[in-house]
Design a protein around this nucleic acid. Structure first.
Length: 643
RNA sequence: GGCGAUGUAGCUCAGUCGGUCAGAGCAUGCGGCUCAUAUCCGCAGUGUCCGGGGUUCAAAUCCCUGCAUCGCCA
């Protein structure tokens, strides 16, 4: 049997809920796992959640939850989402698992004993609001950009990992192993970063600042900080160092990450492994971002463009196919409902679904619903060589899938599907069926088509597991046996004549955009009528209103008032203004700091609950009150005027 | 500010060493078939290959420069 394969996603940080990016990464890993499984490898797939650190503590506080409860809740959201997306992970690790914590401590101790972790004191600019250090260049006018206060110079001691020691080794390793980081552009990015001297990595936080982490085994006053904890999950999950799974799967390890965490995975992680004596991974597969565009269709349908919602609306497999086919692995792509529907209709419904349907139907009409005899010499092969085309497709598919070029792999499959549709047209089985002398030739043609479908089913299985299994079953095969027989994907002539076929089904229904749009207006009519327009004004009237962009520095509830908030707003003037706004029912004070809003700056001051309000915040209102705040779609300096 | 990537048909993109490289899919128009999910097949277009300059017998492809977008670093 071929060597085992081990694929991981990053463990997702639990300070936010799952979104399209998480889904894509995980579907990529799932597709890779299934592909290698299909090709006869023993494949293991790990995902999970990253649950330590101050951001998680903050997020928990925001929701008024105990940290434990909060991480359990979010981690559960991820864990429960994956089955819905047909994710076949073999394990779900949490950095709060006891086994993981033990491994992290063992590795830290090992590296510490080897002398690659050292203790050092340093001085830096610390913002108590952010609970972090800032570099000079990060400050705005010498102040913290978030809190607009000057950070204090403080001294702190921490533990550092001697990453710089492994810089030359890493450069050499990347250069000697093409595909170590792929696509190549990301290897280049890492190499260009490594042209500059690497700094050692700070790996601890004093417990005075952070307690939600794993204790350093050699100093109980510190916890380890993010990367040592998070990255080691890939090894700890398998029971590093002695675990059976680790021995078996680690030699086949590959990671999948989005480009935002290239540096930790391309630099920190390999040097950590080197220092710990863990063999480094084979491949780091780096993908780009999905830009989610507002689509025309969604607007006319009046629906929300939440990609994960669309996966339910149009089908999980359709969604998986779109993601894998549309994105050139490594580059950014844009996600839109139109593009999704386009792919579903043209590729899945018209090309694949219809091909399957017409071939199986013909087999019932012309071949009594069984696989006919194979007559290789009679199958128009001098003109068409469907078997050759199939083998070429499999070859191109394998080449692409091995290198994470999923879009190319699928394109190769669809090229073959198109070839089969042409073959149907050219051989015209319905004509052959009318001619008794052509009976053998009809059998030959139908055999080729059914056999082609078998191979298509195999190749699409990693992305469309359910549809592929349906196809296989309709072809009269046992799906489990089929999927276990990896060799069958590379061979032509496997279907056994005489096998009973099942009736055809619609694999992927067409999406009728017009019908959906006809339904949409009903919803719109239910929407509340917009208020009557006020009397017309001219430009001079409007010009009297001085609108400016302000940044909210602080917001607090006004005592005894249930609708009012007192805001401190920077309008770029020497002193910030106090503005009282009736938005307390719609917004929590702590959510407003840092937000930019539109302020009526020349409004006559007015006293509200004893507080003088120097202006007014522009907000969206309906009968029920304030429902949204005005802002600008890109940050601008406070005091910027509007017209 | 430094380094790098990208810029090709309405849209998404492919174009390996300069020499049928002006392409594919989708969308559009016309024609054909009837096995099929009003599907499929064929034909037809449209391009200052970002602008400008250069090397060459020959440049989408190489060099310089400008513009735009994006990324990494500072």
């Amino acid at each position: 049997m071929a060597s085992p394969f081990y694929i991981t996603t990053p463990i997702y940080y639990v300070n936010a809920r799952p979104h399209l990016g998480h889904a894509y990464t995980t579907i990529v890993a799932d597709t890779a796992k299934r592909y290698h499984q299909l090709r006869g490898q023993d494949a293991y797939f790990l995902t999970g959640t990253d649950e330590h650190g101050d951001k998680v503590v903050e997020a928990a506080e925001k929701e008024n939850k105990e940290v434990r409860d909060y991480v359990d809740m979010i981690s559960g959201l991820f864990r429960n989402l994956w089955p819905e997306l047909l994710i076949s992970n073999d394990q779900f690790i949490r950095t709060t698992d006891a086994d993981h914590i033990k491994v992290v401590q063992e590795v830290l101790q090992k590296i510490y004993d080897n002398g690659d972790i050292y203790f050092s004191e340093y001085e830096g600019l610390y913002c108590f609001g952010c609970e972090r250090f800032y570099l000079e260049r990060e400050l705005v006018d010498g102040k913290c950009p978030d809190h607009e206060v000057e950070p204090k110079k403080i001294k702190e001691s921490n533990y550092f990992f001697r990453m710089s020691k492994y810089q030359d080794w890493l450069i050499d390793h990347i250069k000697k192993n093409p595909g170590f980081i792929r696509p190549q552009r990301y290897a280049n990015e890492v190499l260009s970063f490594l042209k500059e001297p690497l700094e050692d990595l700070c790996i601890s936080r004093p417990k005075t600042r952070l307690t939600w982490g794993i204790d350093l085994p050699f100093d109980e006053n510190y916890v380890t900080y993010v990367w040592f904890d998070a990255l080691l999950n890939y090894a700890s999950a398998l029971g590093y160092p002695e675990g059976e799974k680790f021995q078996k799967y680690w030699p086949g390890v590959q990671h999948v990450v989005a480009k935002d965490i290239l540096k930790p995975h391309g630099i920190y992680w390999p040097t950590m492994m080197k220092a710990a004596g863990i063999p480094v991974y084979n491949h780091l597969n780096v993908h780009g971002y999905w830009n989610v565009a507002d689509s025309k269709m969604s607007k006319s349908l009046g629906n929300v463009v939440e990609p994960l919602e669309l996966s339910k609306k149009y089908g999980i497999e359709q969604f998986r196919y779109f993601l894998m086919r549309e994105m050139t692995f490594g580059l950014d792509s844009s996600f839109s409902e139109e593009a999704l529907v386009g792919r579903i209709n043209s590729d899945l419904a018209n090309d694949l679904g219809n091909l399957f349907s017409r071939v199986v139907s013909m087999a019932h009409k012309f071949c009594k619903g069984t696989v006919p005899e194979n007559h290789p010499d009679l199958a128009f092969d001098s003109d068409w060589k469907l078997s050759d085309a199939a083998m070429e497709a499999v070859e191109a598919y394998d080449l692409a899938m091995d290198e994470f070029q999923f879009h190319k792999g699928l394109a190769a499959v669809w090229e073959f599907i198109s070839r089969m549709n042409k073959y149907v047209d050219f051989t015209a089985p319905w004509v052959l069926a009318k001619d008794k002398a052509a009976a053998a030739q009809l059998e030959a043609v139908m055999y080729n088509l059914l056999e082609g479908l078998r191979l298509v089913a195999g190749m699409v299985w990693p992305v469309l597991p359910n549809a592929a299994e349906t196809m296989v079953e309709r072809l009269g095969l046992n799906k489990d046996a089929f999927l276990k027989d990896s060799a069958a994907l590379g061979e032509w002539g496997v279907l056994k004549p005489g096998t009973q076929l099942q009736k055809a089904v619609t694999l992927f229904p067409r999406i009728d955009v017009k019908k959906m749009e006809e339904k949409a207006p009903e919803k719109k009519q239910k929407a509340p009528k917009t208020p009557e327009l006020k009397p017309e004004i001219d430009i001079e009237d409007f010009g009297k209103v001085d609108l400016r962009v302000g940044t909210i520095i602080e917001a607090q509830a006004v005592p005894k008032a249930n609708k009012l908030l007192q805001l401190t707003v920077d309008l770029g003037e020497p002193e910030p203004r106090t503005v009282v706004a009736g938005i307390a029912k719609a917004f929590e004070p702590q959510d407003l700091a840092g937000q930019q809003v539109i302020v009526v700056a020349n409004l006559k001051p007015a006293k509200l609950m004893g507080i003088t309000s120097q202006g007014m915040v522009v907000a969206a209102v309906n009968k029920k009150g304030v429902i949204g705040l005005s802002t600008v779609n890109t940050p601008v300096p406070p005091g910027t005027t509007l017209r």
